[in-house]
C-alpha cells in the first residue's frame, strides 16, 4: 500500500502545493503505533487493527481512532513469471513439508504473515524452511529472482516479472486511520481527495479494487466531507 499512498500524496500535492505529505512505509502495526505515539496525521493499513469490530458496527473507533475503508485488496500467492509451480505444493511448503518450492514470507511482526498463516492451516508459525524478509518489496524481489520461490503479496504488487495465483488467500480492506478528535483541515481535504473519483482511480491503477460509487458517497456523508 506504500506505493498507492505515495501516488495519492503526489497527486494531492499537485492540487494543493502548499500542503506536503511525508510517507513512511513500515507496515500496518507500525503505522498504528506511529498514530498513537508519534503524532502522525494518518495511518494507512491493509488490515483492521486487532480489537476493532468493523463488520458488526460498520463504523468502529478502536482506541478512539477513526477508521475509513478506502478500497479493497486481495492477498494472493506470487511467483516468478513463467515459473509454473505446482500450486498444490504451495501451502504444504509454508507448513514446512517436503517441497521443491522455496517459500518466502514477511517477518514475524507483519500482520499479513498472521493472515496467511491462518489461511494456510491455522498453525502458530510457518514451518521450517520458510524465509522471512522485512518488507513486501524484498519479498517481491526475492521471488522475482528465483524460479523456485513463492511468496505472497497484496494486489498492489506490480512487478512485471511476477505472476499471481488465481485463488485468493484473503480479501481485506484498505483502511486509513485517523487520530481521535476533530480532523485538521488538510487531513480532511486529503481524505476527501482519496474518496474522490481521481483518488479511487489511483486505487484501481495500483491494482487494488476501488470502492463502489455509492460506498464513497456513504463515507463522505458520514464524515461530513
Amino acid at each position: 500500500m506504500d506505493i498507492l499512498l505515495a501516488r495519492w500524496a503526489e497527486a494531492f500535492s499537485r492540487i494543493h502545493p502548499a500542503w506536503t505529505l511525508e510517507v513512511d512505509g513500515k507496515g500496518s502495526r507500525v503505522a498504528m503505533r506511529a498514530l498513537e505515539r508519534s503524532g502522525a496525521d494518518l495511518a494507512a493499513l491493509s488490515s483492521i487493527p486487532p480489537g476493532a469490530d468493523f463488520v458488526r458496527s460498520g463504523f468502529p473507533k478502536p482506541q478512539g481512532h477513526l477508521l475509513v475503508v478506502v478500497g479493497w485488496d486481495t492477498l494472493r500467492f506470487r511467483w516468478r513469471l513463467g515459473a509454473h509451480p505446482d500450486t498444490s505444493e504451495i501451502r504444504p511448503a509454508y507448513l514446512g513439508r517436503e517441497s521443491k518450492l522455496r517459500p518466502i514470507g514477511r517477518n514475524l511482526s507483519s500482520g499479513t504473515r498472521d493472515e496467511v498463516r491462518a489461511a494456510i492451516g491455522g498453525t502458530r508459525e510457518f514451518g521450517s524452511g520458510v524465509r522471512s524478509l522485512p518488507s513486501p518489496s524484498q519479498v517481491a524481489q526475492a521471488v522475482a529472482s528465483d524460479p523456485r520461490s513463492v511468496g505472497y503479496g497484496s494486489s498492489g504488487w506490480s512487478l512485471s516479472r511476477l505472476e499471481r495465483s488465481n485463488d485468493a488467500i484473503q480479501v481485506r480492506p484498505l483502511v486509513l486511520a485517523f487520530p481521535a478528535g476533530p480532523m485538521r483541515p488538510a487531513v480532511a481535504e486529503f481524505l476527501s481527495f482519496v474518496l474522490s473519483r481521481q483518488g479511487q482511480k489511483l486505487v484501481a491503477d495500483d491494482g487494488f479494487r476501488p470502492l463502489e460509487p455509492d460506498s464513497t458517497a456513504a463515507w463522505r456523508a458520514r464524515l461530513g466531507l
Binding site: 514475524l108 508459525e125 521450517s128 524452511g129 520458510v130 522471512s132
Partner: peptide, 24 residues
C-alpha cells in the same frame, strides 16, 4: 531461512530475529 536445524521459529537465529523484528 527458518532452517530445519533452527526449527520453525520464523527466523534463522536469535540475532536475526532481534534485528528484523525488534524495531516493529
Amino acid at each position: 531461512y527458518a532452517s530445519a536445524w533452527g526449527g520453525a521459529g520464523g527466523a534463522a537465529t536469535v540475532g536475526a530475529a532481534l534485528v528484523l523484528d525488534l524495531p516493529e
